[in-house]
Design a protein around this nucleic acid. Sequence first.
DNA 1: CCCAGTGTACAACGTTCGTTTTACATGTGG
DNA 2: CCACATGTAAAACGAACGTTGTACACTGGG
Lengths: 174, 174
Amino acid sequence: MAGTRAEIVSSAERVFDRHGFAGTGMDRLCEAASVSTRTLYKHVGSKTGLMAAVLESRMSRFFERFDVHSIEELFEALETWVAAEGARGCLFLRAQGETGGLTPEVSAVVAEYHRRLLELARRVIAEETGRPDEVLAEQLLVLFEGATSAAPYLGAGAISSARSAAVNLTRQAR
Amino acid sequence: MAGTRAEIVSSAERVFDRHGFAGTGMDRLCEAASVSTRTLYKHVGSKTGLMAAVLESRMSRFFERFDVHSIEELFEALETWVAAEGARGCLFLRAQGETGGLTPEVSAVVAEYHRRLLELARRVIAEETGRPDEVLAEQLLVLFEGATSAAPYLGAGAISSARSAAVNLTRQAR
DNA sequence: CCCAGTGTACAACGTTCGTTTTACATGTGG
DNA sequence: CCACATGTAAAACGAACGTTGTACACTGGG
């Protein structure tokens, strides 16, 4: 089959997201991908390798969907994402927490994700206000992270709260 | 010994925080508490029971240290907390994520924590502005959650960003 | 036609999991 | 001084862990 590895990775993403990384065994991952143990190992090497592949794949999908240029677009994209994938907290933070930051393959992807996320916040602020503003960018990042973290228990209201806060802060700074 | 259970719970909190819940075995928890397997089980019943006890204990300590009445105090308390305990993300969110929300004993404590946290945000906003403001309270909560989540990779700057954002939003609303 | 690639099933590796059992030491209070 | 609560050590439970080995079935292209 052509997309065997892709199927392994995407089904693993779903299972990891729903049941945690350490809490999920290889059996369950094989079953979710409808693939034998041997095949899974041929494609991803190890559980750690699978985790890294999952995060890598999620990062690509994330930044495709968050190719935004304004605050409104940013939080609208987050609402769409949550509506489609559910709100269970940031998978990158969860991976880092579960591994204790002791798994280089995982930490590397998480670090890159955070670098790109900060870069995205900077870009949005620059395009929104017409000039770079490091403080505002960091505030936007904190609001985004907060919305992601609070959405599991506050619901979509967390996202609209974050959006209005970001809008107000930006207007105020102008 | 008198505080055996307390010692078990507090050492477990450290280990869970550093290595994750599912990723930590009972052996390691016994070793951390300098206690036999049998004793640990007598005191906390099960791993799930230990997790719930850890979260319960942390919740008490948290709300003792966060008995604050202004935004400045709130984020100052967070800075103190992070300086003392390190920034590895919210342990309640991590517990909920690792269990997939399928462990009632854990979910119950997490839910109570979130209820009290929202209540704290409401109170701080009311005392700060002189009247209740649900929107502002939720924004403050999102900022607090965001600071907690971003601190592991942004450092203490995440907290000061959140504080200044909260201050600005509140001033603006007045 | 056959070879290489890609998949399968299945058992087993040694380790660690969470949990329980058995047997024994300690010190404190009635 | 006995009883009891509370602790210890060490071994074992069955199950699940991540991982590897062996052996076999299908497929497409030269």
